[in-house]
Nucleic acid binder design. Structure first.
Lengths: 218, 218
DNA sequence: ATATATTAACTGGTATACCGCATACCGAAT
DNA sequence: ATTCGGTATGCGGTATACCAGTTAATATAT
């Protein structure tokens, strides 16, 4: 008798619940997470709630003030800069590393994702963003570096929080598609240098748009 | 009224205790961590031990097998490669970023660390490694990117685990000093490109030595 | 003797009660 | 009116008891 699926603990469920609530904005920044009320609300005890919160804390979603409470961290320009700098460094490396060894199959997969994004451009912003994430993470997978992949995955999570803004207007969507095409073109040449530059240019542009749209606040 | 010191929980203490035990080899890879016995041994309850273990799990030191146990992950060639690739990408970025803006004070600090390392070269391997970490982390600090800094700090922790091997022989110590000097020289020119290359060359060399010394096993 | 069912002794997972710090409130002293 | 100090309350931190799979030794049937 084999176990079919993995065991999913309450902790996991609560974690996913809370993270998606933060990402979607249902729980706003500055808001306090209260172990007891969340536990009651979800029908579990404080323990799994507590462990879920610890994970969120580790991933920098929330901050624990001892004896006072757990507060959802807010994001400012500095956070955006930090995430994009890390993406710049690591995704640039991914491109450099992957360009010379990428297979035709993987190229096809990237093109497929890109065409899906084109279809979704006028449809659903949310789905568009999901596919964008797939595009970048598909490249990352090719490094076979799980440490790097996990880190980029965390960054992608953070992106979701302010990612909604990044592709707010039609212009940026069009640019995003063009830049993805440029990455694909660079990959076709199998040139590590060109690929790295195409990716880093894409990331720099995204950052610029996002920072520009965040300028006035605070 | 200022708060004098930070509050340190049992969880923090247990975490540090366990991590240093793993790093030092007191707890070997493959060994099982048992919440109950550790709690008893340290004179605390299971709860803080459990939370400490969760943190270790998140940082990939251990793996939890539900209802079976928590086992200390072992490190293989792939782990070494992954850590060094991440260092290559991120520390390279640090060099690129910092070269053009580094102050004379910070240059002086780097030189000071380097001369300390020279003094320690024949004394204490452990202290030598600590100073090496300081050198790299000092550069990282200059980016003011806390996300990046935390990631590199985690990588440094991992380095400790197999770092003992990296500077096992006198030859490698001498090379390390030379390569640090090369990084300092590159910084003097304020050239992002040269600095990045000097750092990445240093990291590549360290990786080569380490992989070479790990070749036979498994 | 061997194969199989049982069960006892682990483990981590969860629920819950209690502790101690931080804060807000309220009354007494100034 | 202001300030100081006690106190009630709410929070995370910790301890502990119990639950639920897993495993392996053991009893039992063949």
């Amino acid at each position: 008798m084999k176990k079919i699926g993995k065991f999913v603990s309450y902790t996991d469920q609560v974690y996913r619940e809370l993270k998606s609530a933060i990402v979607s904005g249902d729980i706003q920044q500055g808001e306090f997470l209260q172990e007891r009320s969340i536990a009651e609300q979800l029908g579990v005890s404080r323990t799994p709630v507590r462990e879920a919160i610890k994970r969120l804390e580790f991933e920098d979603w929330v901050e624990t003030l001892p004896w006072k409470g757990v507060v959802v961290k807010d994001i400012d320009r500095q956070d955006i800069i930090e995430v994009f700098q890390c993406r710049y460094a690591n995704e640039g490396f991914v491109g450099e590393r992957v360009a010379s060894t990428i297979t035709d199959e993987n190229m096809a997969e990237l093109k497929k994702i890109k065409s899906t994004m084109e279809e979704l451009a006028d449809e659903s912003r949310q789905e568009f963003i999901n596919e964008d994430r797939k595009f970048h993470m598909h490249l990352a997978q090719l490094t076979n570096n799980s440490l790097l992949i996990h880190f980029l995955d965390r960054l992608s999570d953070q992106m979701l929080r302010f990612g909604i803004l990044a592709v707010k207007d039609k212009v940026r969507i069009k640019e995003t598609l063009e830049e993805h095409q440029a990455i694909i073109d660079a990959l076709e040449t199998r040139s590590p240098e060109k690929t790295k530059e195409a990716i880093q240019r894409h990331i720099d542009n995204s950052q610029d748009v996002l920072l520009h749209q965040t300028k006035e606040r605070e």
